[in-house]
């Protein structure tokens, strides 16, 4: 038996290219990222999962941003060196959660990204994704 099956940890990750039809300021990047993490976390909690770690990395031509949470009650941590307004960026998300099926983690992630892309009017092109069973 695999050690990890003991704690039913599952993961999902994806890498996307995000494209806006206008320039996005560093502070807008910040709030979009915050909203993505917050919404994924909320949905995981609504589905009775325990968050292992939600991590996000954004790369733009002027810098990068990293963000994560281990649970909303411990807050969302965001560090950013993005200094310019830009209209596209690469977004990587890696989610490990406990007591939830991997398909559900993927579904929650994709639905959240769909919702936020509609709200902020951006398109997203999937570069890579994977289903991970630990």
């Amino acid at each position: 038996m695999n050690f990890h099956e003991e704690i039913l940890a599952n993961g999902y990750g994806c890498e996307l290219k995000i494209q806006f039809n206008r320039l996005i300021t560093p502070s807008e990047f910040y709030s979009i990222v915050h909203e993505i993490i917050e919404n994924i976390a909320k949905e995981l909690i609504n589905n009775k999962a325990k968050i292992g770690h939600i991590k996000l990395y954004v790369k733009t031509s002027s810098g990068y941003l990293s963000a994560d949470t281990i649970d909303l009650k411990y807050g969302i941590n965001i560090n950013s060196s993005i200094s310019n307004s830009e209209n596209s960026f690469i977004l990587v998300i890696n989610i490990i959660a406990i007591k939830i099926d991997k398909n559900n983690i993927a579904k929650i992630t994709n639905e959240t990204l769909d919702k936020i892309s509609q709200k902020y009017n951006f398109s997203k092109i999937l570069i890579k994704n994977n289903f991970i069973h630990l």
């Binding site: 050690f3 990750g13 990068y64 890579k128 994704n129």
Partner: peptide
Amino acid sequence: NEIGEIPVDARIINEYGLKVREIGGGCICC
């Protein structure tokens, strides 16, 4: 070693200019 092929940690460590190798797609303890 992050589980999965889309790791975040190695990219962040790399941003600090450190020499980093990532092993993805599974767990190095098994």
